[in-house]
């Protein structure tokens, strides 16, 4: 924060006390450059001329001119390239190609800051830039250059928003992208918008019912005796996951649930155990959330057509 120098007499508080001198604004470029960049790339007069070559770095022919005030990043974040003519798109493609490896006929639909969470330990977030192109969804890191994650649009079978608590403590919507191989978690500047664009541009990217989460207990097989652990059970297009409180990653992943059986046994939340069988193995879960338990049972119908046993 800039604490500007004070140069005037202290004003009087309406109630009579001194409140200190009037704050003086700063024009010091060292402190104001970020504001100046925002102002000049994002604001200012716009012209409804067909002959504008660029606005904030983007050639502008036949573009929605209301949008023209937005800076290049804003426009790319909004996926506005669709409205541009071929020559304009070629220009943008060329300038982007310097930064990210695209094939010759691949076009960027939208681009925004984001990151990918590594599935393997340490399960950390790796920041980069998320690109939606005419063929792929990818997360690219420019420096050092690395493709952090990518999926062909036709391989994407599900997209969903997941609310997570970020390291900074805010609730953040993450984009969960399910392919036949995995469910990847992406952070993006505008997850809702990217999801909408994905649905629009993906070949037939399906929309799924939102994920269902509940407080779920999991009987973890440990050396000696198994232990019930509290955590979050999630049912979604990627199947079932369970993540223990404080764990960085789910301890249970079942992509396709074969059967769900209900057994009687003592659990921390009653006398009912859900015995869930999947390709990955069989796990024992318990929850007070009846709706979640029902959804778990019915997911057997949806995904494998198997017969749930009760």
């Amino acid at each position: 924060m800039t604490e500007p120098s004070a140069a005037v007499a202290p004003p009087q508080h309406p109630q009579g006390g001194l409140v200190g001198p009037a704050l003086q604004p700063t024009r010091d470029l060292g402190a104001t450059l970020p504001d100046l960049l925002d102002a000049l790339l994002d604001k200012g007069v716009y012209l409804d001329l067909d002959l504008i070559v660029t606005v904030a770095g983007i050639p502008l022919i036949g573009v929605n001119l209301r949008a023209a005030v937005a800076g290049v990043e804003t426009m790319l974040e909004h996926g506005m390239m669709r409205g541009w003519d071929e020559q304009t798109r070629a220009w943008v493609r060329e300038s982007l190609a310097r930064n990210v490896p695209l094939s010759a006929d691949e076009e960027v639909v939208a681009r925004m800051p984001g990151g990918h969470r590594r599935d393997a330990p340490p399960g950390d977030w790796r920041p980069g830039t998320v690109y939606l192109t005419s063929r792929r969804l990818l997360v690219w890191r420019a420096d050092p250059r690395e493709m952090l994650w990518q999926a062909a649009l036709e391989d994407i079978i599900g997209i969903d928003l997941r609310t997570e608590r970020s390291v900074g403590g805010e609730d953040r919507d993450r984009l969960a992208v399910t392919t036949r191989a995995e469910t990847a978690l992406l952070s993006v500047a505008a997850p809702g918008r990217l999801m909408a664009l994905l649905r629009e541009h993906g070949p037939d990217a399906p929309t799924h019912a939102p994920e269902l989460r509940a407080q779920v207990w999991y009987l973890e097989e440990r050396r000696g005796a198994p232990a019930w652990r509290g955590g979050t059970g999630t049912l979604g297009p990627g199947g079932l996951t369970w993540q223990g409180a404080g764990d960085v990653s789910p301890a249970v992943r079942a992509r396709e649930i074969r059967t769900v059986q209900v057994r009687r046994a003592r659990t921390p939340v009653g006398r009912q155990v859900l015995l869930v069988s999947a390709d990955e193995g069989t796990v024992r879960l318990a929850t007070r959330d009846a709706a979640w338990a029902r959804a778990l049972t019915s997911s057997v119908h949806e995904h494998s057509g198997g017969d749930p046993c009760h």
Binding site: L40, L41, G44, L51, I52, V55, G71
Partner: peptide
């Protein structure tokens, strides 16, 4: 003044 954004170029024909 009414400021104009950075990089606005009007072309002729």
């Amino acid at each position: 003044v009414l400021p104009v954004s950075f990089n606005v170029i009007v072309a002729g024909n």
